[in-house]
């Protein structure tokens, strides 16, 4: 399917619940509300016309006003891919886990939890793994994070 067909097909099945993000990326990019993530994921994973089996990437983003979680899914049978993201408020950064649909989400979500502080409800093992065991300085990839012994790069 081309990008336009993909967009039309997905919007048809999820009308009103998701929003298309206009940008000039080669792939469709949707905004999915946090409550719909699991239903939407289940649909694009199982639908025979989409078969988006590969969770290629899941990353957190701190936009200084809110958190975003970006999902990047690819289908090897149909050779297409889509992006979608969800927006979470700062004070309640919670979204349902998609680990039941894509087991590959396991570490991606753990990482987003560790580095951004986004909680994935239902994740079986939200434990620290990238940072040292005795880490007590919060979530370093947040934009407002200030580290104890970070030497800033000198501006030239």
């Amino acid at each position: 399917m081309t990008k336009e067909e993909l967009i039309a097909y997905i919007q048809e099945n999820f009308s009103g619940k998701i929003e298309l993000i206009e940008n000039d990326m080669a792939e469709p990019y949707f905004l999915v509300p946090a409550g719909e993530i699991v239903a939407f994921s289940r649909f694009i994973h199982d639908d025979t016309k989409l078969l988006l089996h590969f969770l290629m990437n899941l990353s957190g983003v701190d936009t200084k006003e809110q958190f975003e979680v970006v999902y990047n899914i690819c289908s090897y049978r149909h050779k297409h891919r889509i992006f979608f993201k969800t927006v979470l408020p700062y004070d309640k950064a919670q979204v349902d886990t998609v680990i039941g649909i894509w087991p590959a989400a396991n570490w991606y979500e753990r990482e987003a939890w560790e580095l951004f502080g986004i909680t994935f409800v239902g994740h079986p093992n939200l434990k620290r793994f990238l940072l040292p065991d005795d880490w007590d300085q919060g979530h370093p990839l947040r934009k407002d994070w200030v580290g104890r012994d970070v030497i800033p790069f000198p501006e030239v």
Partner: peptide
Amino acid sequence: VLDYAVSGPSARASGVNFDIRKHD
């Protein structure tokens, strides 16, 4: 391979014919 998004030669050794150079 599908569940864990394994790609590259390891996936192609399991019958998943997907190479970005060729298919994307």
